[in-house]
Simulated assay, not measured.
Amino acid sequence: MGSEKKSRLPAIVATVVAVPVAVVAGIAVFNAIAPEADADPAREDLSPVSVTVPELSEDAAVVCLALTATAPDAAGGLHARPVEGGAGAAEAVMAYGDPATVATCGVEPVAVEDTALVYKLNGVCWYSDEAGLEWTTLDRQVPVGVSVPEANEQPVDVLNDLSTVIADKVPASAESPTGCA
């Protein structure tokens, strides 16, 4: 009976050592493959975004309201955020994600040369600054501008989703650069 206790001792020691090692290894593997907590949409900051509201004519205000009233709940995988900035903010401006990508209906039109590089996305013609952070529609009666933070590596994803509703709600203008055809 004494030799029976001695033969179990190595097994017990091995178990006492192996279980904590396995737990630590499991935690290490989980942390290596688990998504970052910042990528969790539930942790995304969806508080109101302070915006500047453009001065709109009565006709432009009606168009912008039609646009914002049918805006998607998400654009480019970014969740919609409320906006604040005075009267008319929610009727003319939309915000998505953290940091916020801000789309403003009724911005000043952008004049571009006919040879300028333009982008046709889901039926809407866009022009961008060199950095790709400021985008403006070129072929709409009421121009829409989108400011994209540098952290957003794929602004085209947001623009594609917004272009669908812009094409539907903001009438096309009679004139646009040749690259928009």
Rank of each mutant, 00 (worst) to 15 (best):
K120H: 05
S7V: 05
A95G: 08
V53K: 08
P72T: 06
E91Y: 06
L117Y: 09
V107G: 12
V148C: 08
G132P: 09
P20T: 09
V19I: 15
P99Y: 10
A151T: 14
V144G: 13
L138D: 00
S163L: 00
S173H: 08
V124G: 09
V146Y: 01
A66M: 11
V165Y: 02
P54A: 15
P82N: 04
V24E: 07
D157Q: 02
L121A: 11
L138A: 03
V124Q: 02
L138Y: 00
D73V: 01
V156M: 00
V93Q: 13
V165R: 07
T101G: 08
V146H: 04
A14L: 15
V102P: 11
E130C: 01
K120A: 01
V110H: 03
V23P: 00
P149K: 12
V49H: 11
S173T: 09
E175K: 09
L46M: 13
A111N: 09
W126D: 12
L159C: 04
V83Y: 04
A37Y: 06
A103E: 13
L159N: 06
V93I: 13
E153T: 10
E91V: 13
V107T: 15
G88C: 11
L65G: 15
Y127N: 02
V102F: 10
A60F: 07
S163R: 01
P171V: 06
G86F: 09
V124E: 04
A34E: 01
T136D: 02
S147I: 03
K120T: 07
R8H: 09
Q154R: 12
V51A: 15
A95R: 07
S173K: 14
T70A: 13
L121D: 06
K169H: 03
G85W: 00
P10M: 07
V148N: 01
G76H: 05
P35Y: 06
D129I: 08
G123D: 08
I33C: 01
A11K: 13
V51L: 12
V110E: 01
P35G: 10
P72L: 07
V24W: 06
E134Q: 12
M1A: 13
P82R: 05
A172Y: 08
P109V: 10
A22D: 02
V107E: 06
N122R: 14
R43P: 00
E91M: 14
V158D: 11
D73G: 15
V49R: 14
V165N: 07
E113W: 02
P149I: 13
P10A: 05
G76K: 04
V93F: 03
E113C: 08
R81I: 07
A95K: 08
S163M: 00
V21K: 04
V144A: 10
K6G: 11
L159I: 03
V156F: 00
A32C: 01
A103G: 10
V110M: 11
N122I: 04
A75R: 10
T101L: 10
H79E: 15
P54E: 08
A103D: 12
T104P: 11
G132E: 03
G106L: 12
A25Y: 09
N31M: 07
T68M: 09
A22I: 11
P41E: 10
W126L: 04
Q141C: 01
L78W: 12
F30L: 15
A174D: 15
P143F: 00
P143A: 04
A37I: 09
S173A: 15
D139P: 10
D38T: 12
A174I: 07
N152F: 02
M94F: 04
A60E: 02
E150H: 06
V53G: 14
